[in-house]
Design a binder for these strands. Structure first.
Length: 257
DNA sequence: ATGCCGTGGAAACCACGA
């Protein structure tokens, strides 16, 4: 079974690219981030016609997350990250699908840092870490995936020295990611490719994609129950080269059925 | 390497992204 995550950067503006990628790679479960569409503007019919049932949490202009199942119906568990009733961003949705519990997340960017946006990011990370612990305690197979907006190590940045003061690479942010993983999660891409430069994002500027000036910020964390089932993982980096592409590429894992 | 591009929404610019 193939599970993918894709920060689409506008689900309607990206619809032709999204549909082409779904048709070419046919993942069983798909997590989307940055829908940038209100709840009622999600392209439900086009996605249904492509063979996918979807649940989504939209928001006008910003954020927005969705979980798609190819011939599977995602059964929603929650659409808000617990821990802050004041937080109105659509950045988390969770569902049972394909025998897994799947959490789809869009972690805040945090720039400019320092400042209130970094504080929001670190607070969100704290809430995610608390929630992730409860997910591990369920003893179910759990996939926690999406745009974490963190490069965990220097291997995950084309030019680390340019990013030392950036909210995606600050020590406290990397530590937050490390502490989350240390609960018992597996960083799926790193497990299978420990020494490889792997990027999931290339800026629209400065020919970043052509120069492979990328970042690895979209991640798959797997609960211990899934560790032995992980057989492959990668990035559909060619999609980033398509016309009207998102600045992220789709990331995927393959699990033994 | 400093939003130089891209998206969405509102208003012919702005917020936001990483």
């Amino acid at each position: 079974m193939r599970i993918a995550t894709y920060n689409v950067n506008g689900v309607n503006g990206r619809l032709p690219v999204l549909l082409r990628w779904l048709d070419e790679t046919k993942p069983d479960v798909v997590c989307l981030q940055e829908l940038k569409a209100p709840q009622e503007k999600f392209p439900e019919q086009a996605i249904k016609d492509a063979g996918y049932n979807a649940i989504w949490h939209g928001q006008k202009s910003w954020n927005g997350v969705a979980i798609l199942g190819r011939g599977l119906q995602p059964e929603e568990v929650r659409r808000v990250l617990p821990g802050d009733p004041e937080d109105e961003h659509s950045r988390y949705i969770e569902a049972h699908v394909g025998g897994l519990l799947v959490g789809c997340l869009y972690l805040p960017n945090g720039n400019p840092a320092p400042g209130p946006k970094l504080d929001y990011k670190l607070g969100w990370f704290k809430r995610l870490t608390a929630h992730a612990k409860t997910l591990l305690e369920l003893k179910e197979p759990v996939v926690l995936t999406g745009d974490y907006n963190v490069m965990p190590t220097e291997l995950d940045v084309y030019k680390p020295e340019n990013w030392v003061n950036d909210a995606l690479f600050l020590p406290e942010v990397r530590t937050a990611f490390k502490n989350l993983v240390a609960q018992g999660w597996t960083d799926a891409l790193r497990k299978l490719h420990p020494d490889e430069k792997i990027y999931t994002f290339w800026d629209y500027f400065r020919n970043a994609y052509e120069r492979n000036a990328g970042l690895r910020i979209d991640h798959f964390l797997l609960s211990p129950q899934l560790d032995k089932r992980l057989i492959a993982a990668g990035v559909d980096r060619n999609v980033r080269g398509w016309e009207k592409s998102s600045d992220h590429g789709p990331v995927w894992i393959e699990l033994k059925d």
